[in-house]
């Protein structure tokens, strides 16, 4: 446990050192930051939007934005939290644009439709169904769930990334799990 904590602290220190080096004009420090986080950011976005090309594009935009505004990073949160916040915000923007462009029904409507499609979904493989169920969660719950389960972030960090309080992050996570549980129970009983 102690060694894990120390490792985390070292990562944070390394990140801050790289940020400082970049601020002093060392461009290679930025490259190191990108190399160190590109996979995590890409897969985080991929898990949210499910489209590899778009995920790569948003990941690029994330790092371009980091490059542009790294000088304004104060180190109040860890670099990772700051980076995740940029990535999540760009992903949310992308999802909103996508909804506008494709005139997708709002999420609540989509949820109702999903209820209707439940029978149809039963025919699919369970994990696929579960993934679809996750994708139909309200945006905030879904993002919180992904940050908590896959990124294993504490609520405090999720709150910093998503905006809002630690309590709100916790509530969103519990709602997400509860919503999934209800649908999961239905799926299981249908089987």
């Amino acid at each position: 446990m102690v060694s894990i904590k120390m490792k985390k602290e070292n990562v944070v220190d390394d990140d801050l050192q790289l940020v400082e080096r970049f601020k002093r004009g060392d461009q290679s420090a930025f490259d190191e930051l990108v190399l160190s986080y590109q996979s995590r950011i890409y897969y985080l976005i991929l898990r949210i939007i499910g489209d590899s090309d778009e995920a790569a594009d948003i990941a690029q935009s994330t790092f371009v934005k980091v490059y542009r505004s790294l000088h304004s990073f104060r180190g109040r949160s860890s670099f990772k939290t700051w980076l995740y916040r940029i990535a999540i915000n760009l992903t949310k923007n992308y999802l909103r644009e996508k909804v506008k462009k494709e005139r997708l029904p709002p999420l609540r409507e989509a949820e109702r439709q999903a209820e209707g499609k439940l029978e149809e979904m039963i025919a699919k493989e369970r994990s696929q169904m579960l993934r679809e169920t996750v994708s139909l969660l309200p945006e905030r719950q879904r993002l919180t769930l992904i940050l908590r389960i896959y990124e294993e972030l504490p609520y405090k960090e999720i709150a910093r990334i998503m905006g809002g309080t630690t309590g709100l992050a916790k509530v969103n996570y519990y709602h997400a799990i509860n919503n999934l549980r209800k649908k999961w129970t239905k799926l299981n009983s249908a089987h």
């Binding site: 898990r47 489209d51 590899s52 369970r126 579960l130 996750v134 769930l145 389960i149």
Partner: peptide
Amino acid sequence: TVKGLPLPQV
């Protein structure tokens, strides 16, 4: 099960 969900195909 959720945690073990594979990533979308890349």
